[in-house]
Write a protein that binds this DNA or RNA. Structure first.
Length: 857
RNA sequence: GCGGGCGUGGUGGAAUGGUAGACACAGGAGACUUAAAAUCUCCAGGCGCAAGCCGUGCGGGUUCGAGUCCCGCCGCCCGUACCA
């Protein structure tokens, strides 16, 4: 028997698509456009199953939309700047540029056999000077519009390697290479004014109806709009030139429960005390011996230091509160100072108990008067509570009302004001690293910070750098820093900081619309192709990348690089799950895990064992693929053994796209068998078509035709609804239907041509092959998507389940349009219902036509 | 710590508040074959001979009816601003 040979078929059709230019995106005024984009990959060196999943999903959409008559843009590029290239250079002595471009070449070669409908002519890497040069031009535009500025900010400093560390390079408070405790150090850095747009970025979330609710919620919480009271605590005695501490609180109604005022170790007051007092300096130094990561700070033990200073309570000048420096207060949020109310905040309470500070209830639950013990009383703001002191004329009311009353009270009395505050901070883009986009400014002794002239762009990264010592090679380069001031012409120094790689990925989607333009974008191309109609990527990018991109599109619009309609660049977003795989491990003599490759284990008598030794293996199902755990499945092996279509089919089949999918060898084999079966079916029909003449239409033909239309409707609904796994399930069922059908050969051929079309977004090579075998015209990739005839979807009878007290006990076969009264009559006559009623009448009878009957007895 | 999400048979999963387990994997039985592979047919949530009972992480609640909605737990995953 002949078999489907993917090694022949897949390259053949890839060549045919290329020759037809099937995936070249063209501006076509006659057709609606559709821009589908998957988050572009970091060129780590090899593609993995996560890439296969991401790009296959996008490809399904791209191919489907193309068939549905859209002019499709489906590009691919490389997020190519970043730390791993420098780490590789340090580890192996190569150059980040060589490493990166080699990786890109390898990964491109690995991706092409997947048969993705990508317009490769638009490919670029963010480390191409043509790309980062345009990014530098935009930076200058942003600078001109006041969207970028400089200020001081803290970084993780490794005092041994004398270099700035990323948060992920800080492990348990120490540098990953040196092992030395990190310090926080302040540097002057560049910032984008994203916080100016907090309100717009927040309110515009409402319009993103085709974004997952969870992503919108996460972004809203991240932006963190709050309303509260800002006011000052006066120091009982001034410390230097500071005589008050400004605080912001969202719970001013707890003011009468205040226990102490806490300030950040970076607060101006702390700095001032630090200069003159060793004990304060020691504590602040300890606070700074912690990385800058929020998670680390929050999880660290809460520590404080009593400065000995005291402030007066704004409502009672005789009430004095101590001022503490605390390690969990961020200088970047609010005013860098808070007042603590231990009775109504668990963190404050833990702190107060630890340092034996007073705990006083501001309010109680109605009808209670037990003071807080070890658990803070934190009712929802909407809940009514009884206030202990009626300071703002509030007695028993909700937290919300009390907050507003307190703000009004403070404003009237003139000691505080209601303000809106955002958690979102400005975006620090400076990186003290080599492998990134140089920030195109110059430092001149007489002119200060001067933007580079646009005609001098791109400011190219020098190639002659070494990574044998830690730190930024741009800083120690013998000549690169030297330049002439663009303003006065005197000798000056280039900025040696490069840009955060989030900058690169904040506008690549716009660049794809005109990747070779000599300006960042081309107005006509941007107007035609923007917005991205469907963006697909991992949930890990829910906040930073997507928020920065939303800001960037606005900034680009302000500078004339994007039309007004593209201020919100992604119309629809889909976040896909991870690809996981079982981990197989045994234990060595010390009980440490030893990880085994999937090929090293097999199943014997229901147990999993090492093939070689027969030793029993522990199996951890569904773990994230990780090189160190030896559970990575290489897509190339799958493509070699089974073909790209099998990999694509499997990765779509088993799990809903938004959830994690577990790669299993048996699942991949099953996918392969199914594709073989589809091919055999087509081959069988082709052979019999040559033998047999056409017969007249029969009931079997009609039944197959109805099944075909049902398949069209269901598969299409699955694709439209991003439920590719259900489309796949329908296609399995449709295959069985065709195989078992006794319909005539022409009817079966027609069904199989529709099959070819329906599978074409998922398994495009097999689709082309059987389309051609069965006499389809041209490429199936260019054939119009089939439409289901609604008349063919109507059923003659439907099954109506009968429940008794909500449990299914029987069922009826009825015409779909049977009136309610008649259904009731038949249902009550049903033997199971009769038995349950026992001669009586039902308490209640619910009939949902076309759905269900429920008899309550 | 905080914010967000997820949890259904041996496994992956399906299910506009309306028949829980579609479609597959693994498993079992059978057909074909000298045999195996491949292919095809059938069985299959748990307990029970059966009638039936129990079942969607755990505990409550709303509803005629809850996997789905609400409240509280537990577990895992993502993010936490210099990983990308």
């Amino acid at each position: 028997m002949s078999r489907y040979d993917h090694t022949q078929v897949e390259p053949k059709w890839q060549a045919a698509w290329a020759e037809a230019g099937a995936f070249t995106a063209r501006r076509d005024p006659a057709r609606p456009k559709y821009y589908v984009l998957e988050m572009f990959p970091y060129p780590s060196g090899r593609i993995h199953m996560g890439h296969v999943r991401n790009y296959t999903m996008g490809d399904v959409i791209a191919r489907y939309k193309s068939s549905a008559g859209f002019s499709v843009l489906h590009p691919m590029g490389w997020d190519a700047f970043g730390m791993p290239a420098e780490n590789a250079a340090m580890a192996t002595g190569g150059h980040p540029k060589t490493w990166t471009y080699n990786n890109i070449a390898v990964m491109r070669d690995q991706m092409k056999p997947l048969g993705l409908s990508i317009d490769w002519s638009r490919e670029f890497a963010t480390c191409d000077p043509e790309y980062y040069g345009q990014q530098q031009a935009m930076f200058l535009d942003f600078l001109e519009k006041g969207l970028v500025y400089r200020k001081n900010a803290v970084v993780n400093w490794d005092p041994v390697d004398m270099t700035v560390l990323a948060n992920e390079q800080v492990i348990d408070g120490c540098g990953w290479r040196s092992g030395a405790p990190v310090e926080r150090r302040e540097l002057t850095q560049w910032f984008f004014r994203i916080s100016e747009y907090s309100d717009e970025l927040l309110s515009a979330l409402d319009g993103l109806e085709n974004w997952p609710e969870k992503v919108r919620t996460m972004q809203a919480n991240w932006i963190g709009k709050s309303r509260g009271l800002q006011f000052s605590f006066d120091l009982t005695a001034p410390a230097g030139d500071i005589d008050a501490i400004e605080v912001y609180t969202t719970r001013p109604d707890t003011l009468m429960g205040a226990s102490f005022v806490g300030i950040s170790a970076d607060h101006p007051l702390a700095r001032q005390l630090e200069a003159g007092r060793e004990d304060v300096a020691a504590f602040c130094a300890e606070c700074r011996q912690m990385g800058t990561s929020e998670a680390d700070m929050e999880k660290a033990e809460k520590k404080g230091f009593d400065t000995g200073l005291r402030v007066r309570h704004p409502l009672d000048p005789s009430w004095e509160l101590p001022v503490w420096i605390a390690n969990f207060i961020l200088m970047d949020y609010g005013t860098g100072a808070v007042f603590a109310c231990p009775a109504h905040d668990q963190r404050d309470l833990d702190f107060a108990r630890k340092y034996d500070l007073p705990v006083k209830n501001a309010f109680f639950l109605p009808g209670e008067d037990t003071p807080v013990g070890t658990e803070a009383l934190v009712p929802a703001k909407s809940e009514t509570v009884r206030f202990a002191d009626h300071f703002a004329g509030i007695a028993e009311t909700t937290g919300e009302a009390a907050v507003e009353a307190t703000i009004r009270f403070a404003e009237t009395a003139g000691w505080g004001r209601g303000v809106e505050n955002y958690r979102l901070r400005d975006w620090g883009l400076s990186r003290q690293r080599y492998w990134g986009c140089p920030i195109p400014v110059v430092h001149c002794d007489s002119c200060g910070v001067v933007p580079e002239r646009k005609e001098n762009l791109p400011v190219l990264l020098p190639d002659d750098v070494s990574f044998d010592v830690p730190g930024n090679p741009l800083d120690r380069h013998p000549t690169w820093r030297d330049c002439a001031c663009p303003s006065c012409g005197a000798p000056a120094r280039r900025e040696t900081d490069t840009m955060d790689t989030f900058v690169d990925s904040s506008w690549y989607y716009a660049r794809f619309t005109a990747p070779r333009a000599t300006t960042p974008t081309d107005a006509e191309d941007a107007a035609y192709w923007m917005n991205v109609d469907q963006y697909i990527g991992g949930i890990e990018h829910a906040i930073l990348h997507l928020l920065y991109s939303r800001f960037f599109a606005r900034a680009m619009n302000i500078c004339g690089h994007l039309p007004d309609s593209a201020r919100e660049p992604f119309d629809a977003l889909f976040t896909q799950g991870m690809v996981t795989h079982a981990i197989y491990l045994t234990r060595n003599a010390e009980g440490r895990p030893v990880y085994h490759y999937p090929e090293e284990v097999e199943s014997r008598d229901g147990r999993t064992v090492l093939t070689e030794t027969g030793a029993e293996v522990e199996v951890i199902p569904s773990a994230k693929m990780s090189k160190s755990k030896n559970n990575v499945v290489d897509p190339l092996n799958i493509i070699r053994d089974f073909g790209a279509d099998t990999a694509r089919w499997f990765i779509l089949s088993d799990s809903p796209p938004e959830r994690d999918v577990e790669w299993t060898a048996s699942g991949a084999e099953a996918a392969f068998r199914h594709l073989q079966r589809v091919w055999r079916l087509a081959d069988d029909v082709r052979q019999r078509a040559e033998e047999a003449g056409a017969a007249g239409p029969s009931d079997e033909d009609r039944a197959l035709e109805k099944a075909t239309h049902r398949a069209i409707a269901e598969v299409t609904a699955g694709i439209e609804g991003f439920a590719f796994n259900t489309s796949v399930a329908r296609l399995y069922a449709f295959t069985t239907t065709v195989a078992k059908s006794q319909a005539s050969v022409p009817a079966k051929a027609a069904a199989m041509r529709v099959m070819a079309q329906l599978i074409s977004p998922m398994t495009p090579h097999l689709a082309e092959e059987i389309w051609t075998m069965l006499g389809g015209t041209g490429l199936v990739a260019q054939a119009p998507w089939p439409e289901a005839d609604p008349a063919m979807l109507v059923e003659d009878t439907i099954t109506l389940p009968i429940q008794i007290n909500g449990k299914k006990r029987s069922e009826l076969q009825v015409p779909p349009d049977m009136p309610k009264a008649e259904i009731e009559k038949i249902a009550l006559a049903d033997p199971a219902v009769q038995k349950a009623l026992g001669g009586g009448s039902p308490k209640k009878l619910i009939v949902v036509p076309g759905r269900i009957v429920n008899v309550v007895v």
